[in-house]
Amino acid sequence: MFTGIIECTTKVHQFNREKNNLRITLNNPFLNNEIQINQSICHNGVCLSIMDINKKTYSVIASEETLLCSNFNFLKIQDEVNLERGVMLHERLNGHIVQGHVDTTVTIIKIENRNGSWLFFFQSKNKLDQLVVEKGSITINGISLTIIKCDQYTFNVSILPFTYEKTNLHLMKIGDIVNVEFDILAKYINKSIQKHCKK
Results as ranks from 00 to 15, higher is better:
7 E>M: 11
34 E>S: 06
10 T>C: 09
13 H>L: 06
19 K>A: 05
17 R>S: 08
17 R>I: 14
29 P>L: 08
24 I>L: 02
8 C>E: 02
37 I>W: 08
17 R>G: 02
33 N>H: 15
29 P>T: 00
38 N>E: 15
10 T>K: 04
35 I>F: 10
14 Q>Y: 13
16 N>A: 14
27 N>T: 05
25 T>R: 09
37 I>T: 05
18 E>C: 12
30 F>Y: 15
15 F>L: 10
36 Q>K: 14
13 H>P: 04
16 N>L: 15
27 N>R: 11
14 Q>S: 11
13 H>S: 06
9 T>V: 05
23 R>M: 14
28 N>D: 02
18 E>G: 00
7 E>P: 10
25 T>N: 03
24 I>V: 07
8 C>Y: 05
13 H>G: 02
9 T>S: 03
32 N>I: 11
32 N>H: 06
19 K>P: 03
25 T>P: 08
25 T>Y: 07
18 E>T: 10
29 P>N: 05
18 E>P: 04
28 N>M: 09
17 R>K: 15
37 I>Y: 09
7 E>V: 12
20 N>T: 01
35 I>S: 01
27 N>H: 15
30 F>K: 01
28 N>H: 10
15 F>D: 04
22 L>W: 02
14 Q>A: 07
11 K>G: 04
11 K>R: 14
18 E>Y: 10
31 L>R: 12
35 I>G: 01
11 K>F: 13
18 E>W: 07
33 N>Q: 10
8 C>G: 02
23 R>Q: 12
7 E>R: 06
30 F>A: 01
35 I>V: 09
24 I>H: 03
23 R>G: 01
32 N>E: 10
37 I>N: 04
15 F>K: 05
15 F>P: 11
11 K>T: 12
28 N>G: 06
34 E>M: 11
17 R>V: 13
31 L>Q: 13
7 E>T: 07
13 H>E: 03
22 L>P: 01
32 N>Q: 10
28 N>T: 08
14 Q>W: 10
25 T>M: 07
24 I>Y: 03
15 F>Y: 13
17 R>E: 07
15 F>T: 04
29 P>R: 05
17 R>L: 14
26 L>R: 00
14 Q>G: 01
14 Q>N: 13
19 K>V: 04
29 P>S: 06
7 E>C: 10
21 N>F: 10
35 I>H: 04
18 E>D: 09
16 N>Y: 10
